[in-house]
Amino acid sequence: MNRVVVVGASAAGLAAAETLRREGYDGTLTLVGDEPHLPYDRPPLSKQYLAAEWEADRLALRTGDDLAALGLDLRLGVAATGLDPGDRVVRLADGARVPYDGLIVATGVRPRRLPGGGGHVLRTLRDALALRERLGPGRRLVVVGAGFLGAEAAAVAWRLGARVTLLEPAPVPLAHAVGEEVGRMLSRAHLDRGVELRTGVTVTEVTDRAVRLAGGEVVEADEVLVAVGSLPNTEWLADSGLTLGDGVVCDAYLEAAEGVYAAGDVARWHNPLFGVRMRIEHRTNAAEQGMAAARNLLGPDRRKPFAPVPYFWSDQYDMKVQAYGFLRGHDEVAVVEGDLAERRFVAVYRTGARVSGALAVGMPPKVIRAWRQSIASGAVWDEAVRAPVQVRRLRGVT
């Protein structure tokens, strides 16, 4: 293999490129990124960077010297526009055709927009800077979507003195992922600080200064942030012959086609640990998946399935939320330590007969890490959660 192309220059793509070199690949290595910046970290965009606690230089994942040491053919500020698998060529927006023997797709996701097309989104450094410059004491911010991204941005805006309204279509924010009672607990953190949280509302149009709801009501704002999820960046692969369906569809080894692998937010792969296809939009998963894709590409005869216990975290107000596993579609949730009312607890999730996830708020990392092994080993629920006096069982979510 003489030519490897990695499309996507964020966490997954960078991890793939570094792993290729670390594993001994010394051929041509092209790293393509549609943003002009060197690879940078995205989670701080909705936290430290939005709050103006960090500047852009602290977001860099590697220095220019670090990247130079990798000997990359670095193509930044140019998007991939097509893939010709027969000729094994990636087409770029500047007209270049980049040949490959092996390809790793790590093109990530982009924010969903709503009718009207207005408002801010929060995905790139440019997005975060545009919103940061508009926040401050007395400013009215409407956030559409009370998921983790919307909640984090709302918390930062509140801390900066803005008047915040959160609009959420579901009756309980995040209930589909963490369960109704945990979702209500997270919601109370907003209400306790005077953030207006409106649930069960449908947004029909978004402009830069207002949001229209079903029924005609208009919620005015100085700024609007749309945080209603994301779409995988797969349009450039439409005529590639790859299987696309909420991402680039891969097998357990992250292979999408012969010599083509995917990693990061764009990859939808079969995770054998949980027995389902999943697409994970978390920073830790992106880096781990980039490394795994690179190793499997280089060593097809010694490939390993990618079977991680996903991990994510979120900072909201004074709460640190951490979670392991695959919480969506769980059947039952139980608090095994602490108390929901005190916002200091560990909740464990059951899917079928096994422990499938754990979430902690306000607890030391070692407390929830102890549950990671239970998830990884497929621990039986009735054996792992067997102290009924200490366990508060909550309603399940189907």
Rank of each mutant, 00 (worst) to 15 (best):
R3N: 15
L254W: 02
R140P: 06
A256D: 01
D382T: 14
P305M: 07
P85G: 14
L254D: 01
R302M: 12
D382E: 15
I104S: 08
G86H: 08
E288F: 11
G86T: 08
L340W: 11
G64C: 12
M185D: 07
V249I: 14
N285Y: 13
L298S: 11
G150M: 03
A177T: 12
G179E: 01
E55T: 15
R277A: 13
G13R: 02
L160Y: 06
R354I: 01
G215T: 06
R303A: 13
V218N: 07
R295D: 04
A51Q: 04
A358R: 06
V203G: 00
G118E: 01
Y100D: 02
T234V: 15
A51I: 04
T63F: 05
T234E: 08
P85W: 08
V172E: 02
G264S: 07
E196R: 14
F148N: 00
A11D: 04
L20F: 13
S374C: 11
L166G: 01
R110F: 02
L141Q: 04
L70D: 04
A307D: 09
G329F: 09
I280M: 10
P310G: 05
D246A: 15
R163Q: 13
A221Y: 01
I280Q: 06
R283E: 12
T204P: 00
M363T: 13
A293M: 05
R113K: 11
R209Q: 13
A96P: 03
G13M: 07
E337D: 15
R350F: 06
A151C: 13
G290H: 04
E383C: 06
D192G: 15
G136C: 08
D192F: 03
A227T: 00
I104T: 10
D251A: 09
R159M: 04
A9E: 01
A151I: 05
R134W: 07
R91N: 01
D73N: 14
V355L: 13
V4W: 00
L298D: 12
V248K: 04
Y349G: 02
L70G: 03
E168R: 04
A16V: 10
A189Y: 03
L20H: 07
A16E: 04
A162Q: 02
L174R: 01
A294L: 04
Y253G: 09
V172I: 11
L20S: 07
T199W: 09
E223Q: 08
V206H: 00
F312C: 06
A16L: 09
G27W: 03
V335W: 12
D192W: 06
V89I: 14
V228R: 00
E35W: 07
A257Y: 04
V201F: 00
E152F: 08
A256K: 00
A56E: 15
Y317K: 02
R97T: 12
L244R: 02
A170Y: 03
V156L: 13
A347Y: 05
I104L: 14
A106D: 07
K304T: 13
D26W: 09
R328Q: 14
C250S: 12
R139I: 10
A358Y: 08
V164N: 01
V143H: 00
R209I: 05
N296R: 05
L167C: 08
V172P: 00
L76F: 10
R140W: 07
P308H: 01
L273T: 13
R198F: 11
G325E: 12
G138N: 09
A170T: 09
T124S: 15
L244F: 03
S377V: 09
T165E: 02
V367S: 08
E332L: 14
F312V: 07
